[in-house]
Design a protein around this nucleic acid. Sequence first.
DNA 1: GCTTAGATATATCGATGCGATATATCGTAT
DNA 2: ATACGATATATCGCATCGATATATCTAAGC
Lengths: 175, 175
Amino acid sequence: MIEMAILGLLKDREMHGYELKKELTAQLGQFWQASYGSLYPTVRRLERRGLIELAYPKVDVTRRRNIYRITEEGEKFFEQRLCERAAVLDDTKFGVRFAFSRYLTVDDRVDLLERRRAYLLEMVADLREKLKSYREKIDKYTYRLMEHRVDTTRADIEWIDRLIAEEKPKTKPNG
Amino acid sequence: MIEMAILGLLKDREMHGYELKKELTAQLGQFWQASYGSLYPTVRRLERRGLIELAYPKVDVTRRRNIYRITEEGEKFFEQRLCERAAVLDDTKFGVRFAFSRYLTVDDRVDLLERRRAYLLEMVADLREKLKSYREKIDKYTYRLMEHRVDTTRADIEWIDRLIAEEKPKTKPNG
DNA sequence: GCTTAGATATATCGATGCGATATATCGTAT
DNA sequence: ATACGATATATCGCATCGATATATCTAAGC
């Protein structure tokens, strides 16, 4: 997912590693702790694969800053992955895709939201079933944690419903 | 964290790997996807360190099931880690600790909840500041994601407040 | 009794990610 | 001058993930 986040940020403008780290923390820090240990190796990997490249090769030697830009191939890769139907849409995967969903068509964005919605509904149903069947068997605090997850997931679904309602009129102007 | 989860489960009763995987998914599946790729190596590591051991060595050869139990050393390790003050109390770290908080004293449990509360309050304050200063600078969907996080985190804090209120009267019987 | 299918059970591979740390330079305040 | 905190890149060892291989057990259908 860090690959996608880096490509998404570089699609906006050229950046160097340290800058990417700051932006990742600021904009997407809710989903994971962007560490140098994953950032720099991933940047290298993307460069090796030709998905990004140095913007001003060797010019900024004095400052030792490596400023990167996304390549055409990188853009293709990014856009393909972005609208790809992922089997599991957990918090991180959904978060990164939604954060860059300005690069999706309205239809694909609504589709993303609806698949996330389905995933969350399934999770709530599973948890509800477990809460019923486990009631006396599991620990009080584990039980509380499951109840809590049901509550917050319901709030998530309501948030998604509002977003879908906002997006949909554009595709199907009717009610 | 999988180490702690495995030790916590084995503190209740003896289990083999496959069973551990099922319990992890059922009880703690909200926090991470317990995969075989992390489960079996972790079990091995815990065995090598003497924190768990085979319950019936070589007896169940026919079924090839390795049934493990926690050792005294494992229990010590588990209890120390459980009440240890972690610098960061993200979802996973808090979740695992809370799920096994029946092994904590009331005071330590309240302390855990209050540290999680402080962590979440800080996160909300950070996000609020970012929402103000970034308003026009960042993308609409990234912005929505941050708003969403603020909302759900507030719900989280309310849940914690209710739990603290439930726990506290036992230590300080007064209001 | 024979075979097939799905659940049970253990294990490992390569890739990815994390936390800590090393190193050096830049900007600026004393 | 120099001392310090922010900027910047990089790597090490370990933990974790997703996919896959392999074998056995169980139950159903013939």
